[in-house]
Design a binder for these strands. Sequence first.
DNA 1: CGGTTGACCAAGT
DNA 2: GACTTGGCCAACC
Length: 103
Amino acid sequence: MSFYDEVYKLCKRIPKGKISTYKVIGDKLKTKAYRAVGQALKNNPYAPEVPCHRVVNSLGFLHGFKGEKSSKALNKKTKLLEKEGVKIKDYKILDFKKKLFRF
DNA sequence: CGGTTGACCAAGT
DNA sequence: GACTTGGCCAACC
């Protein structure tokens, strides 16, 4: 059971239509490895299983893709998010605080 | 095993 | 208010 696996598990725990932050996840894992969490999700070998798009930084921003070329994965997932009921504007989650899932 | 990296964060400048 | 710095932790090279 690696750190990554823990991260993936937590991601799966996030209910549809809600989102969470790297910070919360790290806190949940009793660690401050917010960055490591980010790595786990960007790698995301469990692409469809683990909804990494439901995890954003503390400001509610979807980082990573500047334009459409980089981080296509997130780009897709962003649309998926909107589909799930999470409104996004300029890669930022609207009503972020309300939809934030703290586990 | 040491140094770099990363989808980070908070505090300082 | 934009930018830099230092700290944090795990994975990767």
